[in-house]
């Protein structure tokens, strides 16, 4: 093999190596452009608003990443979020003295239960995740409407302590962001430094081998959907606290943003690979877009189309890059 051959790796193989740096670069360039068009973009208020929004998105994206790594998908998280947010909100309205931490715990538990049910359907009965989560989405959404009886829980009903979850700060950092950071760190440690965490990747990478290696695939699947549910429940409380309202149709369709954040962050839909750092960057990019589009006078009705376009382009780029990497392996063969 000549020297020239060895250096001529395909451009997409290079992209694969620098994916996160590229994403970061793109975020910076985008921010600069938006800032030029509308100087109110990089103001303290706007940034803090953007970051807190992104915090919720990224918490969900971390959970979704685990689900996608196992070759699954969860479309029910928007409904889970709404259900736990609604119940938590109603509980604090009924008991204004309730400590906010307990409200968070309550929401998380409800989400956890939702996730456990879904995980049980997927793991125990082998129902396709898309079908199971589509069905449960309806169930959870219907339950939310029934629990709320079609009514809203509005800002003035909620006790100040509850609303303060989103506005207060811990060690000088906004609580929402603090919670998100804690979740990043814990998840990072979990998926990289614990046995169970690595088993999630093993199951996604090759389910058959995982079984032979003595991994209980069902338990892992059940676990990731439960984690996803728990995180959705947590996000539900945070969401309701931040927007100070709980409705039947809270976060409808939000699962799509979360999936978009994952694929933008390089999580492979085929399973087995995905990084926390990528998912965080993906969430930030999406958060900036959502925030910036109205600022540069893009009609809110365009947002959905743009978001869909981003998902599609991101998965197509992932696919093309993957092909390039494979082709690169082929070119290295000495034929």
């Amino acid at each position: 093999m000549t020297q020239k051959d060895r250096n001529s790796s395909t451009w997409s193989a290079k992209i694969a190596r620098f994916r996160e740096a590229g994403l970061l670069g793109f975020i910076l360039v985008l921010s600069v452009i938006v800032q030029f068009r509308n100087p109110s973009f990089l103001t303290i208020e706007n940034i803090s608003d953007m970051v807190t929004n992104t915090a919720i998105l990224s918490i969900l994206a971390v959970g979704m990443m685990l689900v996608i790594v196992t070759r699954g998908i969860d479309l029910s998280i928007g409904a889970t979020l709404a259900l736990s947010g609604m119940i938590a909100a109603q509980t604090v309205v009924a008991n204004p003295e309730l400590h906010p931490v307990l409200a968070i715990l309550l929401g998380t538990c409800i989400g956890l239960i939702c996730g456990m049910v879904l995980g049980w359907l997927v793991a125990r009965f082998g129902i396709l995740p898309i079908i199971a989560s589509l069905g449960m989405m309806n169930v959870f959404r219907g339950l939310t409407f029934m629990v709320s009886d079609g009514k809203w829980v509005s800002a003035h009903q909620m006790p100040a302590s509850f609303k303060a979850i989103a506005t207060s700060s811990l060690l000088g950092i906004n609580t929402l962001i603090m919670i998100a950071i804690i979740i990043y760190v814990v998840s990072y440690y979990f998926i990289n430094h614990t046995r169970t965490g690595r088993q999630i990747y093993a199951v996604g990478s090759n389910p058959d081998s995982a079984q032979i290696s003595g991994i209980n695939n069902g338990r892992i699947l059940w676990l990731v959907y439960s984690i996803m549910g728990g995180l959705s429940g947590l996000s539900g409380v945070l969401w309701v606290s931040k927007f100070a309202s709980a409705q039947g149709d809270t976060a409808m369709g939000y699962e799509l943003s979360v999936i978009a954040a994952c694929v933008l962050g390089g999580v492979s839909i085929a399973g087995g690979s995905g990084k926390i750092s990528g998912v965080i960057l993906g969430s930030i990019l999406l958060g900036i877009l959502n925030n910036a589009l109205p600022l540069i006078n893009v009609s809110p009705f365009w947002q959905m189309g743009i978001q869909g376009g981003i998902i599609l382009i991101a998965v197509l780029i992932n696919a093309v890059v993957k092909r390039g990497v494979d082709r690169n392996h082929l070119m290295r063969r000495n034929v």
Binding site: G305, G309, L312
Partner: peptide, 26 residues
């Protein structure tokens, strides 16, 4: 793009198609 499943492709186009509908009629 055989490496993408129908789930993810139609998930993306699901958002896009409705997104275009919103762009047209708001």
């Amino acid at each position: 793009f055989k490496e993408l499943s129908a789930v993810i492709v139609t998930l993306a186009t699901m958002i896009i198609y409705r997104g275009i509908a919103y762009m047209m009629l708001e």
